[in-house]
Design a protein around this nucleic acid. Structure first.
Lengths: 157, 157
DNA sequence: TATTGTTATACTCTATAACTATA
DNA sequence: TATAGTTATAGAGTATAACAATA
């Protein structure tokens, strides 16, 4: 067992590496936190967007979350089969569906939100309110950073 | 196009959500930065660990990076086929291989490191040195957070 | 008996292309 | 002609189980 004193070398100062590891750690604990609810990180995200924007269509949800149209289909079907959202043809654009949370979806949101708050508390144990605020601010600045995109002009979904 | 004024609702205050998005943004730009080198985030990480710990075996590399033994095989094969690392039977434990970077692997590390530094500069444009240091510190604190793990005692590879 | 590396395999995620119905 | 949703499908990434060689 030569597993002591291992150096991570060039990875040490890389924000990208540490973001990846921290994000993966959150994902593992998120799964534990949601056990039994049938919700995953993605499906909770979709549900949250629909809850906050009643009448939104699935293309827009995907655009916000960085999920391709094609991959949204199964996610929306999953939430509908669970009875958490419903879908009705948008009268102003009959190609699109207007999505809304059901009463059951609202309950699921409340339960999930409570579980996730506990999960975040675990993952950020020892963080002061200032630390948490600083973390969110820094991450949001990264998210807002413009990405050059492969060919000067590629398709973000 | 109803893509203005969309709220992310319950996701807004969640560090886990923002970590995921920020990490994904880094991953996209990393791929662009490495175009033509044949290296991905994972393979660069493996190469870095080997470079920093000559003689290390692949199980240990996987343990550090959170990659399962079974999935390390293809990664190591890939780096060997590219001639970036080599593998010789560890004389003190003939089940294991001692991994080391080749001269070509050292060159690849130098090229990759330069590209990645430029990539990190892009992603953290506008960040002061203090901001960058704060980000790294916060992320490392998250990584060090003990994870309960599903059954009180599960296997982290 | 336990551990290193290996194979085989399944399951999830993500990406692309082509189709339909509406606009 | 363009857009919303859909289908099919291919490629990564990740997880489990079982085996050989060695400890």
């Amino acid at each position: 067992m030569s597993r002591a004193r291992i150096k991570i070398g060039a990875l040490e100062p890389l924000a990208g590496y540490h973001l990846r590891r921290a994000s993966a750690a959150f994902a593992v604990d998120f799964t534990i936190a949601m056990e039994g609810t049938g919700l995953r990180q993605v499906t909770f995200a979709v549900l949250s967007i629909v809850a906050a924007n009643p009448g939104i269509n699935q293309g827009t949800v995907g655009h916000i979350l960085g999920i391709k149209r094609a991959n949204m289909v199964a996610l929306i079907n999953e939430l509908i089969e669970k009875g958490l959202i419903d879908r009705l043809t948008d009268p102003r654009d009959r190609r699109a569906f207007a999505l809304r949370t059901t009463a059951s979806g609202e309950n699921a949101m409340r339960d999930a939100t409570a579980r996730i708050h506990a999960h975040e508390e675990r993952m950020l144990a020892g963080f002061s309110e200032a630390d948490k605020a600083a973390l969110l601010t820094l991450l949001e600045r990264i998210e807002r950073q413009p990405i050059p995109s492969k060919a000067g002009r590629a398709d973000r979904d």
